Computed example of a mutant assay.
Amino acid sequence: MDLNEIPMTPHDDQAKRDALIAYGFMLLGLFTGIFWLVGAVWTMTKSSNAKGSVFYDHFQNITGVFWWGLIMSVIGFVLAIFFVGYLILLGVWVWSVFKLIKGAIRLTNDQPYHSS
């Protein structure tokens, strides 16, 4: 057994599955739109079940990506009459991709989102 390996409980396994589904919806939502909302709703409904698991911070990450992405996208759309709005929208998209892929990779490696 690796010293960095986290012992998994059934509660952790369920939290990991739920977070993986949420990451999948959110990543798909970057290209389809509606799945972004589905992933956020999934995350917010399943996060209370994940409390106490080693993967709980993944739910916080996904929720943060959703809300910050939504807020910054609205600002970008409002400013789209100027060129800066498109830069904001591009920045939000790139930031979201980075945060979601980083989280999915850490999740599939059985790691919390934030290292301790």
Rank of each mutant, 00 (worst) to 15 (best):
W36Y: 13
N61H: 05
F77L: 13
L27T: 12
Y56C: 03
G33L: 12
G24Y: 00
H58S: 02
G64W: 10
I34S: 11
T43N: 04
L28I: 15
L20P: 07
T43E: 02
G39M: 01
H11W: 07
W67G: 07
F31I: 15
M8H: 08
W67D: 07
A15L: 06
K51N: 07
G85M: 05
G39T: 02
G29Q: 06
F35H: 12
M44P: 06
L87N: 10
N49S: 14
W36G: 03
V78M: 08
F77A: 05
Y86V: 06
Y86D: 10
R17F: 08
P7D: 11
W67C: 08
F77P: 06
S48V: 14
D12W: 10
W42D: 03
H58V: 03
T45Q: 15
G52D: 09
D12K: 11
V54Q: 04
I81A: 09
M44R: 09
W67Q: 08
I21W: 01
V65F: 00
L70T: 13
F77I: 11
M8Q: 14
H11M: 09
A22G: 13
V38G: 09
A50M: 01
A19Y: 01
A15R: 02
I75N: 02
D18Y: 02
D13I: 10
L37F: 10
F31M: 14
G52Q: 10
L27V: 12
D12E: 13
V65I: 14
N49F: 14
L27K: 05
I75S: 02
P10R: 00
S53T: 10
W68K: 11
N49R: 14
I75T: 03
T63A: 07
I62W: 00
F83D: 07
I75H: 02
I71T: 11
G29S: 06
P10Q: 01
D57W: 14
T32D: 12
V65N: 00
G39C: 01
F25R: 01
L79T: 05
W67H: 09
I71L: 10
F35R: 13
I21E: 03
F77C: 05
L20M: 14
A80R: 11
V74K: 04
F59K: 02
L27R: 03
D18N: 13
I21N: 02
S53F: 14
A80G: 08
G76V: 01
S48E: 15
T45K: 15
Y56E: 09
G29H: 01
V78L: 12
P10V: 00
D57S: 13
W42M: 03
W36S: 04
D12H: 12
V38L: 15
G64E: 08
F59L: 06
V65D: 00
A19C: 07
G29E: 06
G64I: 13
M8G: 03
W36N: 11
R17V: 07
S53Q: 12
Y86Q: 08
V78G: 03
V65T: 13
D57T: 10
F35K: 13
I81E: 05
G85H: 04
R17H: 09
L30E: 11
G85F: 02
A50I: 00
F55Y: 12
R17K: 14
M72V: 12
V65R: 00
D12P: 07
L79Q: 04
Q14T: 02
A22H: 12
V74L: 14
L27H: 02
A15T: 01
G29I: 10
G24E: 01
